[in-house]
């Protein structure tokens, strides 16, 4: 599941993510094409985006666990106006994806024309380049 720049017309143009010290494991794993989520063993729940503390318990006993990369579209929007460099791909689909692990990731839906996307549609993880880093996106899971 390593990044395939041929899939993304924006390859090399997306702004690089600006990580925090506490999200470094997420971005290190992203370089290997692995999606890590923070897991709170006390509550048995995952959380996203990465935080310095469990949002459930207020404790710092978080573990990093690899996600399946499978989910469904919770909601979406078709972007007709976007900041550069995204103008070259508009209209494009932005979705909030609900992962089977019980968290949501808001990201681009690639390889999906606007008339194809539906709420509830199964999607799977893909990676694009943002700066020199891997950034998680999703695509239809046929």
């Amino acid at each position: 599941m390593s990044a395939n720049p041929t899939l993304d017309p924006l390859a090399g143009q997306r702004p690089a993510p600006v990580p925090h010290n506490f999200s470094k494991p997420f971005w290190d794993a992203a370089r290997e094409g692995r999606l890590l989520l923070q897991y709170d063993p006390a509550s048995g729940k995952y959380q996203f985006y990465p935080r310095p503390i469990s949002v459930f318990s207020g404790k710092r006993n978080l573990e990093w666990r690899e996600a399946s990369g499978k989910g469904t579209v919770y909601t979406y929007t078709v972007s007709h106006k976007a900041p550069p460099p995204f103008k070259i791909v508009q209209p494009f689909v932005i979705a909030t994806v609900e992962l089977v692990e019980g968290v949501r990731i808001m990201t681009d839906l690639i390889n999906c024309p606007p008339d194809r996307v539906r709420i509830g549609m199964p999607v799977r993880l893909a990676w694009v380049k943002a700066g020199d880093m891997n950034f998680p996106v999703f695509e239809p899971d046929d």
Binding site: A16, P19, S79, P83, F86, I94
Partner: peptide, 22 residues
């Protein structure tokens, strides 16, 4: 800057697009 700018969402109209669709 960590998770939104790399995916190109158009600020508040993008969010309210997601909300309105749902």
């Amino acid at each position: 800057s960590e998770f939104q700018y790399p995916m190109g969402i158009m600020g508040p109209p993008g969010y309210f697009g997601l909300l309105s669709r749902r």
